[in-house]
Design a protein around this nucleic acid. Structure first.
Lengths: 353, 353
DNA sequence: TTTAGCACTCGATCAACTAGAGTGCTAACT
DNA sequence: AGTTAGCACTCTAGTTGATCGAGTGCTAAA
């Protein structure tokens, strides 16, 4: 049975009010604040209906109603109005995120920090999944005998590097030869195609004793693989303590314990977005988040792009009664800013893919 | 008036018990647990004395006593016994920190994470202050036209890099020439000596039109300066929520708000260790920490070395009633492990200074 | 100087009570 | 049939008062 217009109106008003006050909302305060042209008794009847239909919950018999997960879901899916960001706030975001040229890491860090600061909730940014991006350069720079900086450059301009150890009697020339061989052998191959075997095959042109080769190959391989490591940037976790839903120490601890294992969050986010053709944004509410300690939270995420198919995520976590519409417009704006920045970086490089 | 032997004994016992229980300790439980050969009444008299002398406090009239900051200070300075780490725990630390070769960043990250996990408190690691270290290499690697990876290698083997933009019509050869000129001009100079002027002077040998030069020089300069940026690694903040002193939401929030501004902690730590000839470790108790939200905490820090004069810090923050002696031995062990690792890295490079 | 004994204080706990907010239901009204 | 006024009912939060017990401070004796 679908919700009739008045029920929708009332549900929306309840969610709106609860988001604002964090207090169960009563029939009387509803008619008072919004001018429905009916009495509180009528609203009460409607609220009772909404409760039996599962959209509302009552903390105890004589309290107002609060939205259930289903109620929030309905609100988010069809009731709320998302308005574009005010020019001032857009400006503030732009200022925070794009005030200087940055590579991807810095960009994500700033995006995350801006999101946390402007939403007042906590934010996440995940580095892109690079499995499908391909190698464009591999350089090995001798730092000292026995120590090299391995620089991996991927399509879409992402650069990763790592310090590695190699046999210290390997000369700079030999190293140069090896890394050139690897590079030309692997250039254009995607990360998921590259295995220790491909690396070894690629290097067969180099005229270096195998004994010397092995460690270098292994380190090159490791560096390439490591370029795909998922990194998480988190910000604004402290904000969570200011919400009444986490005033109680136990729930706060549950949340922070889960957050501290950042692999968990990253893995979850990664998995959730991987399995779905992502729309512009994705919302998970309360119990929909299958992570301990996050059942009183909601999670809004979106996907940014680096090149054609390579994508990462940014997201905001707040209490279930977070200001969905505002956060959605904020996160969308940030996503667009990131995409734009990444495109700009690419365009500057003469549009090389 | 100095403390006589029995008073010291009692104070020590009180601090020990309070560290364990977080409850005010009573005269009766004292004589019960430790076998002083006097009655509880006598102990009570001594406790009253200790209170008037400022070593103890009474939350309310009919409660036991808890140590004051002064009491902790006395305990830390002359009462507690620091015992070396158990072999098992030493092993566990070594395993966590040194299980693979790592550059400094990774080492600090691991050290911080191990400290947090093993102490059960929260940990900090600060990257070394590199002002006095000197440049040994500066390489610029062309990633794409207009985009370079600037690699700065400092004495003691520290490597930092950064992506920068340069005019995109600059050729790889020109870039190579410029960076070589800068490198040979600045090699052996300490970071604090290097200014935009020195960089410019260093590059005067390169035969490149000045218009092209400027941006490259500026980016080189920025990269070098940025190598000295203080980085903070924090871990185990979630542990703090499990201590009764932070069960109250307000104090937890105070703490986390301060922690979230990581510049503050870094700055404080930096300042505090800078002004003093650091002994093996340094302890700040309660009000001695001049940071909002940390008045119920204690802060144990120590200094690790990278080369001769270059040093950074690691530290542990816990409630005032933290297990000082254990943390001291833990933190000392980690310090030694870091020093050892750094020395090893150096030795491997043939002892170059 | 130590100690047993006792009076005193204060927090924590519990029950009883109250006030108030908010509902659900009923019966009247349009 | 939908709406509404009115009222009884329920439940929480807050208050009060009493009790319990832990722990102290003091006194007087050993």
């Amino acid at each position: 049975m679908p919700l009739d217009f008045r029920k929708k109106q009332i549900l929306q008003a309840i969610v709106d009010d609860y988001i604002e006050s964090a207090e169960p909302v009563a029939s009387k305060s509803l008619v008072c604040k919004h001018d429905f042209h009916v009495s509180s008794a009528t609203v009460r009847n409607e609220m009772a209906d909404l409760e039996t239909m599962g959209y509302l919950e009552q903390p105890h018999t004589s309290a107002g109603r609060i939205p259930s997960d289903k109620g929030y879901r309905e609100y988010v899916d069809s009731l709320m109005r998302v308005e574009p960001l005010s020019p001032e706030e857009s400006l503030e975001f732009s200022r925070r995120i794009t005030d200087s040229f940055e590579e991807l890491t810095g960009l994500l860090r700033k995006a995350s920090s801006a999101l946390a600061a402007q939403t007042g909730y906590m934010s996440l940014a995940l580095s892109p999944r690079l499995r499908r991006s391909y190698l464009t350069q591999l350089k090995m720079l001798m730092i000292e005998p026995g120590k090299v900086l391995v620089v991996v450059v991927l399509s879409a301009g992402v650069v990763k590097d790592r310090i590695a150890r190699i046999p210290d009697y390997l000369s700079a020339d030999q190293l140069f030869e090896i890394s050139n061989a690897i590079e030309s052998g692997l250039c254009g191959k995607s990360l998921e195609e590259i295995t220790l075997v491909t690396v070894t095959t690629a290097a067969k042109d180099a005229h270096i004793p195998e004994m010397l080769l092995n460690q270098v190959l292994y380190e090159a391989y490791t560096s390439i693989k490591q370029a795909d490591n998922l990194e998480v940037y988190m910000d604004g976790t402290n904000h969570m303590l200011s919400f009444p839903e986490f005033h109680d120490n136990k729930s706060a601890r549950g949340l922070f314990d889960t957050l501290s294992k950042d692999g968990i969050i990253a893995g979850y986010l990664n998995e959730v977005t991987d399995n779905s053709i992502t729309p512009s944004y994705m919302i998970r509410i309360g119990q929909e988040i299958q992570l301990e300690g996050l059942h009183d939270c909601s999670f809004i995420t979106t996907t940014y792009n680096v090149g054609d198919k390579i994508a990462g995520n940014i997201g905001v976590i707040g209490p279930k009664r977070m200001d969905y519409s505002k956060v959605i417009s904020q996160i969308s704006f940030v996503r667009n800013t990131i995409n734009q920045q990444m495109r700009k970086l690419k365009d500057i490089n003469g549009g090389m893919e």
